[in-house]
Each structure stands twice: as C-alpha cells, then as structure tokens.
Design a binder for these strands. Structure first.
Lengths: 120, 120
DNA sequence: CAGGATCCAACATGATACTG
DNA sequence: CAGTATCATGTTGGATCCTG
C-alpha cells in the first residue's frame, strides 16, 4: 500500500483493507443483503423486474431497484430495456457475475451444514 | 414453510427467505462487514483481542467487540478468558467456523478475477 | 410495467470516556 | 488488557405517492 503523508489526518483509510485484500473486496461487492439471492436466481437465466420481485417476496420495489443498480454498477448483471408497451426490462448475469456460482454453491453447502450443527 | 394465517397482517415474514434458503441463511451469518476478514485471520490460529485489533486497523474496539460477540453467538468462534493479570482473552474458530475456509478461498479467487476484469 | 421522488423510522457505527 | 456505557450521526430500508 502506498504511504500516507503523516501530516494528513488520515481520511480515506476506510477502504484500505479492501484495497489489499481480495476477500474483503469481494465481500464489499456481494455482501449486500440481497446480492447473492438475486444472483442465485439469475443463474438460471434472464428475469424481468417483476419476476424477480415475485421471487423475492420480502423485497420492496425500491430495494430491488437499488440492488439491481448496484449489481449493474459492479458489472455483475446486464440490464436490457425493450422499447415495448408495456415496458419490458430484463436482467441477466455477466460472465463475472456468473462466476459467482461456486461461491454460492459453497455458501449453500456451508449453510446446510451450519444449520444442522448449530440449528439456527 | 408453515402457512401464515391470512388474517394476520403478516409481520415476521422478514426471515422467510433465510428460513428456506441456505445461501440466504449463510449470507445473513457471514454477510457482516468484518465477519469474513476476522475469520480469515483466525484460520491461521488463535488470536487475542488486541492482536485482532492490530490486524484490522480500521476497526474500532466497539465494533470488534460487537462482531466477535456475533461470531460467538453463531458458534463460529470460541472465546476463552484466561484469569491472568493482565487479562488475556483468546479467540479461535470452531469447526463450523473453520469450515468457512473454502468459501473464503473462492471469494478471494473471485475478488482477484473481478478486480482484473472490472478494475476496481 | 418498471421504476423515480420524497419523507421518515430504525439501525449501524464512530467518538469519547470509563472500568474490572 | 479487554472490554462497557453513552451520546451523536450517518446510512439503510420501508411506506407512500408519482411518472415515462
């Protein structure tokens, strides 16, 4: 990491860990409340806004929008707007988004195991 | 999942997803800002409070305490207090905590890849 | 249909000071 | 050393209403 001038009052060190550490970096991207769940559904193919909303019964439209925007920003999903009436918007995973698959798999395995052992 | 009385105004559905879905369940447990980073360090062995604090330069004592308590609650770490002067407290992973290793590994790999493709 | 805008409550987190 | 207590603030997320 680059040295920080000692005279500065050390702003900006917040992301220092993420800068160094791939797992913290990754965690910042996919750590959101809904990120993995959304990606998990999208693994099976494109979905429309309303389809996602129905698959995620607990999410508000607002949150879904925000989450999808974040995923788009991080290039995990691609958003396609079809100029039809009524409007249609589809979301699909990018290659790097699709690369989350093994993580999700491991996470599922661990979740099952943890629930069995600890019994959440 | 058990049926919810239609007459009820549907509180409590918040955790419905986590109830069903192992990956959401897992994500709720390890999704915290610091969880994975702390566990990652503990993979290499026991650590004291102050050691962890020094390894996580951006964390406040308060946060570290909170996070460790949460990890303890979820049985990911074990806390051992040694009645010495000065006081010594050590944290170590439980077996289910240690089982996070493949997840962390996958996450690191993905982080590296994402950073290479998308570029911070 | 797929959001955007606005307002507000709840929670997460930092700063600071104190303790067994 | 390893915390706890308290206050202050920022961020998140829900509710509601509006729009291309």
């Amino acid at each position: 990491m680059s040295k920080v001038k000692e005279t500065s009052t050390n702003f900006a060190n917040k992301m220092a860990l993420a800068d160094e550490c791939p797992e913290a970096y990754a965690s910042n991207i996919i750590g959101g409340q809904w990120t993995l769940v959304i990606c998990s559904w999208l693994m099976q193919g494109k979905l429309r806004f309303s389809e996602l909303k129905n698959l995620l019964p607990n999410i508000t439209e607002r949150m879904l929008t925000l989450q999808l925007r974040k995923l788009e920003e991080h290039k995990l999903v691609k958003r396609t707007v079809y100029a039809e009436v009524p409007l249609r918007v589809e979301y699909e995973l990018t290659s790097i988004g699709y690369a989350l698959k093994p993580i999700i798999k491991q996470l599922e395995d661990w979740g099952v195991k943890h629930r069995a052992e600890v019994g959440g």
